[in-house]
Amino acid sequence: MSVLVVGEISNGSLRAASKEAAYYGHLTAQKLGGECTVLLIGEAQDASELGVYGANKVLTVDPGSEGFDSRVYADIIKQTAQSTDAKAVIFMHSSTGKSLAGRVSVALGAGLVSGATSIPEASTNGYSVSKSVFSGKAIATYEITSPTMVISVMGNSFKPEAVGAACEVTANTLSAKTANTQILGRSTQSGTVPLPEAELVISAGRGMKGPENWGIIEELADCIGATTACSRPVADIGWRPHHEHVGQTGVAIRPNLYIAIGISGAIQHLAGVNNSKVIVVINKDPEAPFFKAADYGVCADLFDVVPRLTAALKNA
């Protein structure tokens, strides 16, 4: 019996999310008994490092073609889950994990809880796992009753801790389906942590008055290594790139710190950010609804406050 974690790779190295997934798998293996095995589809030069976060071993499988194909990957994961006698199959709740978890649950006849924020606990008829629902307005606890369970873990729910040492990496060969789809290209911003994984996020909205004023936001973000984000109107009018839009129709995030600057806090915006651990709101309108959802508020002109905050952080 074992726990199988599906790791993610980008440009030949582990994605940070893989470490959180391995650590979650380790905690789950402690509950269920058995080992934590991480499956990597493709090669990662730092694969053995997953042992530090709780993997007992890493299996790598060559997908046989370039790029991600959910049909092929799900087949590889299903076969590996069967050969390792996996009781739980763990994904991150990422663009990759969301494309695979449903497929693998059907392939294994297993119950699925997606976006989990807790470790499975033994319950009356199986295992119980919780997740945030209704845009963070409630928590649902599910009971999974199938012999195998599939879980995707909400990013930034578990801070990976060093619990072991580098582990063995074994290449596995298996005969899987072949891909019908072809990846034509991929472009990602480099140098910053992607929003769904970011622990610190600086977000700005219409209060900025124009795209030419974003320098002060970028300077603030740079001085604490934060990722920048924006509200929907700002993305819609093209002041900022689409992938920066956080909120209900954009990216949902749960950083440790979310600083919202010149954003009024419409309910659709809050739906994407109210799982943040700490929210700071900077807005000159004392009636801005965002203050009700904030932990700390500064009511003043952002063009005065933001440079002052940057200076205070640099001097701290």
């Binding site: 809880v113 119980s128 963070g136 009971e143 932990d295 700390y296």
Partner: peptide
């Protein structure tokens, strides 16, 4: 294979602490 065992509401936020705009050192 999956059913909701229970729903709960998240713990209430403690309310906002307003910080003096002239004193960003305090916010930090």
């Amino acid at each position: 294979h999956v059913n909701v065992a229970s729903f709960s509401l998240p713990s209430e936020k403690g309310g906002v602490t307003m910080v003096d705009p002239e004193n960003m050192e305090e916010l930090v």
